[in-house]
Deep mutational scan, measured.
Amino acid sequence: DEEIEKWIETLLKRNISLRVNGKDLEIGSEEFKEWVEKFIKEV
């Protein structure tokens, strides 16, 4: 979905790490990609 890709790009540009389930996810890491894929499937 384009919306999500733009959102991810924005996050990448800002180099933010997300806190997911109490863990810091490094943007661009494998864990982050897995989380994004799960997130996309749920939406």
Rank of each mutant, 00 (worst) to 15 (best):
D1N: 11
D1A: 12
E2G: 10
E2V: 11
E2F: 14
E3L: 11
E3N: 08
I4T: 03
I4S: 03
E5H: 12
E5A: 13
E5G: 07
E5Q: 14
E5L: 15
K6Q: 07
K6D: 08
K6G: 05
W7S: 01
W7K: 02
W7Q: 01
E9K: 11
E9P: 00
T10F: 14
T10E: 13
L11I: 07
L11A: 02
L11G: 00
L11T: 01
L11K: 01
L12M: 09
L12V: 08
K13I: 10
K13P: 01
K13D: 05
R14A: 09
N15E: 05
I16A: 06
S17D: 02
S17L: 14
L18P: 02
R19L: 08
R19Q: 05
R19K: 08
R19V: 06
V20G: 02
V20F: 06
V20R: 05
V20M: 07
N21R: 08
N21V: 04
G22C: 13
G22S: 02
K23W: 09
K23T: 05
K23D: 03
D24F: 12
D24K: 13
D24V: 14
D24I: 14
L25M: 08
L25N: 02
E26C: 15
E26D: 11
E26Q: 10
I27P: 11
I27Y: 09
I27V: 10
I27T: 06
G28H: 03
G28W: 09
S29D: 03
S29K: 05
E30Y: 10
E30P: 13
E31M: 12
E31F: 07
E31D: 06
E31T: 04
E31Q: 09
F32G: 01
F32M: 03
F32W: 09
K33S: 06
K33V: 06
K33R: 13
E34M: 14
E34C: 14
W35F: 07
W35T: 01
W35E: 01
W35H: 01
W35N: 00
W35K: 01
V36K: 03
V36Y: 07
E37S: 14
E37K: 15
K38F: 11
K38S: 06
F39E: 01
F39Y: 09
F39W: 12
F39N: 02
F39I: 09
F39M: 08
I40V: 07
I40T: 03
I40C: 14
I40L: 12
K41A: 06
K41P: 00
V43F: 15
V43Q: 08
V43S: 08
V43R: 11
